[in-house]
Amino acid sequence: MSEATSNGPLLVASGVTKQFGGLTAVDDVSFAIPRNAIVSLIGPNGAGKTTFFNILTGLYKPTLGRVSFDGRDITGGRPDKIMALGVARTFQNIRLFGTMTALENVMVGQHTRMKAGLFGSILRLPRVRREERHVRDKAAELLSFVGLRPALHDQLATNLSYGDQRRVEIARALASDPKLLLLDEPTAGMNPQESGDLTRFMERLRDELGLSILLIEHDMKVVMGVSEHVTVLDHGEKISEGDALTVRTDPQVVEAYLGKQEAERQRTEDGVG
């Protein structure tokens, strides 16, 4: 078992299905994330990518199927417990705590790594004091690591610029020392320069911190540049997977994105050209 824990894939989802009433948002998707790797999940809008994310992080319980992380079954587990095991995430539409400062946001991210309880906090025992100091320092370090100017550390999150909010969100996710980072469209609203920076940043996380990253992304340049493995969802089903090149040339994928007619037109054009 311990063999499998240290060598097998970090996360395995098998046969995951999620239905809302009559609608099947995710349909029998099986999927694995290797250790120390960046993999991507792509698909047209409404393909079920974010729903799948929410299942992995425990916000939704899957109707069918299982998810295991690091050798442990986490199917339908509570989000905070899954987080404590080492799965951290960001959100498609940034969800920072608006009336907290950037620093405090990152401190909340360390919640599961802290011990202070009700009475300890009221009495502010030396142990609690030390912990607070440590957590504060670590939060500042992380904010610097993601590139937020120190002057902005004590700004309320809601007053930060869009790009800085994205940085704080990533720092907040990193604060729990995760093994797996789930990024939901992190480059949305960024220009190509910024996207490129983020791509290099993700590689740093993988290489320097040994993280695995699961990326939902629309920007194909980012996806193709950084991912070792790509999975494509459409209408909740997995329609293709493989390395970037395989997926890009898969006719089913092209069809899902462009529609059948367009795909055929392109194919004939390719044939002619």
């Binding site: 046969g15 299905t17 349909d27 029998d28 109707t63 069918l64 199927g65």
Partner: peptide, 9 residues
């Protein structure tokens, strides 16, 4: 897929 729904049942 069929097997998955069977397990579910």
């Amino acid at each position: 897929m069929a097997s998955a729904s069977l397990t579910g049942a």
